[in-house]
């Protein structure tokens, strides 16, 4: 292609660029504003200031005292719950996906079909019976209450199942001839070669757990067990809202997932589209 041609192509793309720039700005602005607002006084935020201020430390002091001073415990809880849930999800769902794909027969395929039906079950429909169940076994306010409904999901099982297709059965046969037990084939051979899919599933699972709100709100009745999204929701529930402090709280809640997003964007994209192949 000649130089002239190239510049013509680019010139024709100008409306596209303008449209994409506008969309990008709209997408990024609220997050920029959140960060800027976290450094301003409530009054300045309300006045529409979008420049950085010098109130960050004062806002931080206020935030530390908000909701009975549960900032650190909320952050810690969120990290704990999300990490534990991710580990269990990765293990149990990959095991199932592997089993459904590489040991598949008529019965297992039928069972898989039934499991997929769980995708249609909305969280709001199971919330009350599950709450009753969890409180009966005295697990309210525990990490188990948080993770149990979220560990095994049809989406994750499907994702691992689809991606197990590229694991060659010949290797398994060879391993069996060498006398390797079935479970060792999974741990020693399957897991290491599926690293990228574990990363994608891990990112999506952690993000989902970190951002969960309805279910934790139901089972975490004690302030000391609350998660970060619950903490920031509690800050704003009063009549007067300190915008600077609130936005700093929102920033605290968003920072971990945003960092993951920037570092592992490819895995995140693969994660959400994971079961589509």
């Amino acid at each position: 292609m000649t130089k002239k041609n190239k510049s013509m192509v680019q010139r024709r793309l100008i409306p596209t660029y303008i449209f994409l720039i506008i969309c990008s700005l709209i997408s990024v602005f609220p997050l920029y504003w959140m960060i800027a607002a976290a450094t301003n006084t409530s009054l300045n935020v309300a006045r529409g200031s979008i420049a950085f201020g010098n109130q960050l430390l004062i806002n931080f002091e206020h935030l530390k005292n908000a909701v009975q001073g549960t900032l650190w415990s909320s952050l810690g809880n969120s990290f704990l719950y999300a990490t534990v849930q991710t580990i269990f999800t990765l293990f149990i769902c990959s095991l199932a996906g592997y089993g459904f794909e590489l040991y598949h027969d008529k019965h297992k395929d039928r069972l898989f079909g039934i499991i997929l039906l769980a995708m249609m079950v909305p969280a709001v429909a199971t919330m009350v019976p599950l709450f009753v169940l969890i409180s009966k076994v005295k697990l309210l306010n525990s990490v188990w209450a948080f993770i149990l409904p979220g560990i095994s999901t049809p989406f994750m099982i499907m994702m691992f199942r689809q991606n197990s297709r590229n694991f060659p059965p010949d290797i398994m046969e060879a391993a069996r001839i060498d006398g390797l037990p079935e479970w060792k084939i999974f741990f020693k051979m399957y897991m290491p070669v599926q690293k990228s899919i574990y990363a994608a599933a891990g990112v999506i699972s952690f993000m989902n757990a970190w951002n969960a709100y309805l279910w934790p709100k139901v089972v975490m009745t004690d302030n000391r067990a609350q998660t970060m999204p619950m903490f920031i929701a509690n800050i704003t529930s009063g009549y007067t809202v300190d915008y600077g402090m609130t936005m700093l709280g929102v920033l605290f809640c968003s920072l971990p997932t945003m960092i993951i997003f920037f570092i592992l964007q490819k895995q995140f994209a693969e994660g959400i589209t994971g079961s589509v192949k």
Partner: peptide
Amino acid sequence: LFRTCIFLPCATSLVSYSIIFKSM
């Protein structure tokens, strides 16, 4: 760059962006 910008809102939790929009 465009892709990252437009995809970025997904990194915020539903509660976070609700509060951001409420304040805005």
